[in-house]
Computed example of a mutant assay.
Amino acid sequence: MAEIVIVGGGIGGLATALAVARHGHSVLVLERADRFGEIGAGIQLAPNGMHALERLGLEEKVRALAVNVDELRFMDGITGEHVVSMPLTESYRRRFGNPYVVVHRAELHTVLLDACRASPGIKLRGGATAAGYEQDATSATVVLTTGERVTGDAVIGADGINSALRGHLVGDGEPRVSGITVYRAVIPMESVPVELRWNAVTWWAGPKCHFVHYPIAGGKYLNLAASSDDGATVAFAGVPASKTHVRDEFAKLGRTPRRLLELGEDWKSWVLVDREPVDEWTDGRVTLLGDAAHPMLHYAAQGACMSLEDAVVLGDLLDCSAAELAGRFVQYNAVRRGRTARVQRLSRQSIQLWHPAGARASDRNEMLSSMSTTDLHDYIAWMHGARQFDNPVVPA
């Protein structure tokens, strides 16, 4: 069996370690932070992400932590009109085979980390920052910023949107700055007015902004995420934002979303970034995964799901000898690029749904409100309904 080095100890990297190790390979996961952990707040997992977790044997553990959401609710953020809801209960779960859940990112990461620590084939090493890679006909080497070299039969880069391995492999420069700043906070559910404790992922759409909220941590907290198309030109991440600034930034929204935003404390802000889809993210015995391969805006709520899908596809393909690894990486790249590129493009296009004003917003509301439950489920079926993730998808 082979020795595989994975760069990045986030959700994608740990899921891949589990998927690869179950075929008997030895796996070393390198993480730049001294300790393995995860920051951030809530994430959404559609049935396709839950199917991937099921393939890893972790679905039940995640379900025990997650909130099963009843609907995706779209609201006009100015008028307060309930435009449309996509039900996520009986017919949705029958059709797609799993619930739509929300979970705290750290909780999902902990489930994956515990499983990796319990696996005899996986080693975890913190404080190891990758600068690039080298390879020859029989091995691949991660070059660390200290100059140390870590060699295996192959290397998988799961080191995020600013991937050092991608910089070497693809060479497409810095990520694209979207011009949108997102503000995030988590509040105790007990502080939320009872009439607003909806078991839903709720969007309030306004002119050049929108606000999303949903329960996490078994319903103990409400995750708040408000996006402003403010023309930001410089990327930053996790910068504190004052309550006054957030209030002023979203003052245009109606009374109910402002009531919820007013409850937020300890706001942090990020400028959203992504990259253009690329056809090739594999080079010999080195390949990329998740945000290192196909980073996307979070507006389709599929970033974690795509990483989990990548992991199980790659794991299945690596049921092979060390000599076959490079060829299997090519197969993985080929079967994943169409589907992931389509989600990348949809994530960008979604901004047109959230941020119009005036007549365009009215037209949007009319269009959405005319859609039946079946129409809504049909629209997302290609994405949420996937159970086999290794079938090429022609980009739409």
Results as ranks from 00 to 15, higher is better:
Gly152Trp: 06
Leu45Val: 06
Ala323Phe: 03
Ala237Tyr: 05
Ala293Gly: 10
Pro295Glu: 11
Glu195Ala: 11
Met1Ser: 07
Pro240His: 01
Ala185Cys: 04
Ala205Pro: 08
Arg342His: 06
Asp319His: 12
Ala106Ser: 13
Met371Ala: 04
Gly8Trp: 03
Gly147Ser: 02
Val177Gln: 11
Gln302His: 01
Glu90Thr: 09
Leu88Phe: 14
Leu353Val: 13
Glu309Ser: 03
Leu14Asn: 04
Ile39Phe: 01
Leu56Cys: 02
Ile11Tyr: 00
Arg105Asn: 13
Gly147Pro: 12
His82Asn: 01
Ala359Leu: 10
Gly238Val: 02
Asp229Leu: 07
Gly385Met: 03
Ala140Ser: 08
Asn48Trp: 10
Phe250Asn: 05
Asp76Gly: 03
Ala52Gln: 09
Glu280Ser: 08
Asp274Ser: 14
Ile380Ser: 00
Leu88Met: 13
Pro99Ser: 14
Ala381Gln: 07
Gly80Val: 07
Tyr214Gly: 04
His104Thr: 11
Asp136Ser: 14
Lys123Cys: 08
Asp378Ser: 04
Pro99Trp: 13
Ala361Glu: 08
Cys305Pro: 03
Thr146Pro: 06
Ala301Pro: 03
Val102Ser: 12
Ala326Thr: 02
Thr374Leu: 08
Gly13Phe: 02
Arg285Phe: 02
Leu353His: 05
Val29Gly: 07
Ser242Glu: 11
Ala137Phe: 03
Met371Gln: 15
Cys320Ala: 14
Asp34Thr: 01
Glu249Trp: 00
Glu81Arg: 15
Lys268Arg: 04
Ser91Gly: 06
Thr16Ala: 15
Thr129Ile: 05
Thr141Phe: 08
Thr282Tyr: 08
Val101Lys: 08
Lys268Thr: 09
Asp248Gln: 13
Leu376Pro: 06
Val84Arg: 14
Arg93Lys: 10
Ala46Ser: 15
Arg176Leu: 15
Gly173Leu: 11
Ser85Asn: 09
Arg259Ala: 12
Ala66Asp: 04
Gly254Lys: 10
Trp354Leu: 07
Val182Ile: 10
Leu260Tyr: 04
